[in-house]
Amino acid sequence: MDTTTLSTKPRPTVDAVSRGFWENCRRGILSVQRCDDCGHQHYPGSPVCPNCLSSRQSWAPVSGRGKLVSWVRFHRAYWDSFRAELPYLVCLVRLEEGPLMLSNFAGETPDDPPIGASVKVTFEAVDEALSLPKFRIHA
């Protein structure tokens, strides 16, 4: 897919909570929010830790490896910019570090991706400011 198509799609809202995640993605690093007080790791980011309610949090790099928990095939484009890709797959991945992450598959994907398959993150550059984490199935 070319960056022209990607640049017409809806963009994530980058705010004070999510900025660290998106900056890491741009550098090719997958990260989850980690509580500086209790160590709980979670995604997506939040203003306070869902475990201890501390507001002291940072974005910690993770391995980018995980297991496919679920997936869905979209046959309807909710935004016109996705119409050319129909049908497309969205995946739910449990990272090795524990948090769940909703994303898309990258590269060739089986017609029926096996639940429990090992996946690894890759990054798709939209432009100089935005890279999206996507997952490839690997052995």
Score class of each variant (00 low, 15 high):
Pro50Thr: 09
Val121Leu: 09
Phe105Ala: 08
Arg136Met: 15
Phe105Tyr: 11
Lys120Tyr: 07
Arg34Gln: 11
Ala60Val: 12
Ser70Val: 10
Thr3Met: 01
Arg83Gly: 00
Glu128Gly: 02
Ser118Val: 13
His138Cys: 15
Ser55Thr: 14
Thr4Leu: 00
Arg19Asn: 03
Leu30Tyr: 10
Cys35Trp: 06
Ala77Phe: 03
Asn24Ala: 10
Ala106Ile: 11
Ser63Tyr: 08
Ala117Cys: 14
Leu89Thr: 13
Pro133Gly: 09
Thr5Leu: 10
Leu86Lys: 07
Thr13Ala: 02
Met1Thr: 13
Leu132Thr: 13
Asp112Asn: 11
Leu86Arg: 06
Ser7Gln: 01
Ser46Val: 06
Ala16Pro: 15
Gly116Asn: 14
Ser54Gly: 06
His42Tyr: 04
Gln57Glu: 11
Arg73Gly: 08
Ser103Ile: 05
Cys91Arg: 09
Leu89Tyr: 12
Ser118Asn: 11
Trp59Cys: 03
Ala125Ser: 10
Ile137Phe: 15
Arg56Trp: 09
Arg83Met: 07
Pro133Tyr: 04
Ile115Tyr: 15
Ala60Asp: 14
Arg94Thr: 01
Leu102Arg: 10
Pro12Val: 03
Pro113Tyr: 02
Ser118Lys: 08
Arg94Tyr: 02
Glu97Asn: 04
Glu108Tyr: 14
Glu96Lys: 03
Arg65Glu: 11
Leu92Thr: 12
Val93Cys: 07
Ile29Ser: 04
Gln33Met: 14
Cys52His: 00
Asp2Gln: 07
Cys35Thr: 05
Tyr88Cys: 08
Ala60Ile: 12
Thr109Gly: 10
Ile29Arg: 07
Val72His: 15
Thr13Glu: 00
Gln41Ile: 13
Gly39Glu: 14
Cys91Asp: 02
Ala16Met: 12
Leu6Asn: 00
Leu92Ile: 08
Leu68Trp: 02
Cys52Met: 02
Met1Ile: 15
Asp15Ala: 07
Trp22Gln: 00
Glu128His: 02
Phe105Gly: 06
Cys35Met: 09
Arg26Cys: 12
Pro99Met: 05
Gly64Gln: 09
Gln41Thr: 13
Tyr43Phe: 01
Arg136Gly: 13
Thr109Ser: 14
Lys67Ile: 03
Gly39Asp: 14
Leu100Gln: 02
Asp80Pro: 03
Val119Gln: 03
Gly39Gln: 14
Pro44Val: 00
Ala106Val: 12
Gly20Ala: 00
Trp79Asp: 08
Val93Met: 06
Asp15Pro: 04
Glu96Val: 02
Arg83Tyr: 11
Gln57Met: 10
Val69Gln: 04
His75Met: 13
Thr3Ser: 04
Val69Asp: 02
